[in-house]
Amino acid sequence: MTRLEFRVHELTVGQLAERSGVAVSALHFYESKGLISSRRTAGNQRRFSRDTLRRVSFIKVSQRVGIPLAEIREALATLPEERTPTVDDWARLSRHWRGALDDRIAQLEKLRDDLTDCIGCGCLSISKCALANPYDRLGDEGPGPRRLLTGPATGEDARPAARRAERPAGDSCAPVCTPDG
């Protein structure tokens, strides 16, 4: 890999691709979507400021954890374009995303912990579901995998409190005992 000298302030698209590990075509795509920007030389070649490497790294990491490009673009728009973002700039962006990331983490943990036994879809196709979800009670709470869903922006379980109390935490498909059997 080519080492970038400290005095180099602008990168060609090839240098940016090599250093970031992102294909040239992806960099062109990011630019077309407003995630990164370049200037054009007199010969119409792209030149990216050195701090674009940090932005591309941020894009890659954000995409890897499932953040949509639109949200990434909004976050990058809060960073200054006229200078390299500072630690304070990145900290501000991090604070802005903290709640959404915490919610995403909670959803992923719930998926990891509960997926093995049941996705809580209310399908009644597994013999165990007839015990855990008699009469498709989960269907009354709405569509989707009710036992895995967490509430938006709160990280709270989306099920009503009465339903959460009916089964032990972490016991995704345990039969629910009710007074009527």
Rank of each mutant, 00 (worst) to 15 (best):
L131D: 11
R146K: 10
R159M: 05
K60E: 14
E156G: 10
T150H: 13
E141D: 09
Y30D: 07
S38D: 07
V56M: 03
R98M: 11
V61H: 09
L111M: 13
R137A: 08
L53S: 05
A91W: 14
H28R: 15
R164Q: 15
R83M: 02
R92V: 07
P152L: 11
I126Q: 15
R39A: 13
A106W: 03
T41C: 08
G120E: 06
E156P: 02
K33H: 13
G151P: 02
E166Q: 13
R98G: 01
A26D: 13
G139D: 07
F29L: 09
K128Q: 15
L93E: 05
C123L: 08
V87A: 13
F29K: 07
R73T: 04
A23D: 09
N133G: 00
V87Y: 13
P85F: 04
R147V: 06
S20P: 01
Q45N: 14
T84V: 13
E71I: 00
A132P: 00
L138Q: 06
A130H: 15
A42V: 08
R47N: 01
R83H: 05
L101Q: 12
R95M: 10
P160L: 06
P160S: 07
R40S: 05
P152S: 10
S32W: 01
G155R: 12
C123S: 15
G21W: 08
C129I: 00
D89A: 02
T116E: 15
R163A: 11
P134Y: 04
T150L: 15
G21M: 03
D113P: 05
K60I: 02
L53A: 08
D103I: 01
D117W: 08
F29R: 07
E82V: 02
A132C: 04
R159V: 00
R147M: 12
D102L: 15
A77L: 09
R55H: 14
R46G: 03
W90V: 01
Q107W: 13
R92D: 09
I119C: 14
D117M: 03
I119M: 14
A161K: 12
G34Q: 05
G151M: 10
A23S: 11
R39M: 09
T84Q: 12
D113I: 04
T154R: 03
L27N: 04
R137S: 04
R147I: 09
A70D: 12
E18K: 14
E74Y: 04
L115D: 03
A130Q: 11
G21Q: 06
I36D: 03
Y30F: 11
E156N: 12
S20M: 05
T116I: 04
R47H: 06
R137V: 06
A75D: 11
S20N: 02
R146E: 09
D157H: 02
L124V: 03
S37N: 13
D89T: 01
L138Y: 06
R46E: 06
